[in-house]
Simulated scan of single mutants.
Amino acid sequence: MKGKIGLVVGLGVGYVLGTRAGRERYEQIKTQWLKVWNLDPVQEQVTKVKGFVGDKAAAIPGAVWNGVVKVTRSATGPGTPGQKLDATIAAGKDVVEEVSDAAEDVVDEAKEKATAAKSATTRAAKPAAKKPSQNGK
């Protein structure tokens, strides 16, 4: 996923820097981008995504902490060293699954928010349709 994002960013930067029109075209692109970026619907979505990320980012450390507690309890619980090792391994596997599930949930919800933000940006960026002329031409 990071490779795809890097490729897209690289292509975009390459286009902007390598365009034949040079600095003038870069300024046009930048101006249009800033117009879209500063639209109220776009900024509303940015605010929503920032809030979402702040809320959901806390879920992963919580899952990791709970996992550490479970593994520690397994390692220090009653039983022979072999039983403790088996319990610790089992708890570790469970913790990995829980953290993985929490991370997947965050990623899935972030994708949904990004899709919603993208569609809002697209709607906000579309120019108004031209009205037909009054004289029928």
Rank of each mutant, 00 (worst) to 15 (best):
N135E: 11
K2Q: 12
V96W: 08
V68M: 10
E44C: 04
F52N: 07
Q83P: 11
V49R: 00
V68K: 07
G136M: 02
V9F: 09
G136F: 02
A59E: 15
K30I: 01
D86A: 15
E97I: 11
L39Q: 14
Q32M: 09
V107H: 11
K84H: 03
N66E: 13
A103S: 15
W33F: 15
G67W: 02
K113Y: 07
D105N: 15
V16E: 06
G67E: 02
V9L: 13
A59L: 12
V9P: 08
V106S: 02
D40H: 09
R23F: 12
P78V: 11
N66M: 07
S119C: 00
G14S: 11
V69K: 09
W37M: 09
T122V: 12
L11H: 06
K48T: 07
K113P: 00
F52G: 09
G22Q: 05
R23T: 14
E109A: 14
W37R: 11
Q83R: 08
I60P: 01
V106W: 03
E104I: 11
A128F: 07
V99N: 01
I89H: 08
V107N: 10
V69G: 00
N66Q: 14
G6K: 10
A114V: 10
I60E: 01
P61A: 02
A63G: 00
E98K: 05
T115I: 14
S119N: 09
Q43A: 04
A57N: 06
E98L: 04
K2T: 15
P81W: 04
A114P: 05
A116G: 13
V99A: 01
K130M: 08
A103I: 08
K126E: 14
V99P: 00
K113F: 03
A124R: 02
V106Q: 02
Q83G: 06
N66L: 06
K70N: 08
V106N: 01
K111N: 12
A129F: 08
A63F: 01
V13A: 13
V16P: 02
K130A: 14
R25E: 15
G62N: 13
L39W: 03
V53F: 07
V107Y: 09
K56L: 08
E98R: 04
K118P: 01
K137R: 11
S119L: 13
T121Q: 02
K84N: 02
A103D: 03
G82Q: 14
R73D: 13
A125R: 02
K2D: 10
D108C: 06
E109C: 01
V68Y: 08
R20Y: 12
I5V: 15
I5S: 12
A117W: 02
T72M: 06
A116L: 11
A103C: 04
R25Y: 10
D86W: 09
V53Y: 04
L39Y: 03
V8D: 02
P127S: 06
P78H: 08
V49Q: 08
A75F: 09
T47A: 13
K113V: 00
R123Q: 15
A117L: 01
D105S: 15
A102R: 05
Q83V: 03
G18S: 05
Q134M: 08
M1L: 10
E97G: 05
K93D: 09
G22A: 04
F52D: 07
P61V: 02
D108M: 10
K48P: 01
Q28C: 03
E27L: 15
K126G: 05
G6C: 07
D40N: 09
D108H: 12
R25L: 11
D55Q: 14
Q32S: 13
V8H: 07
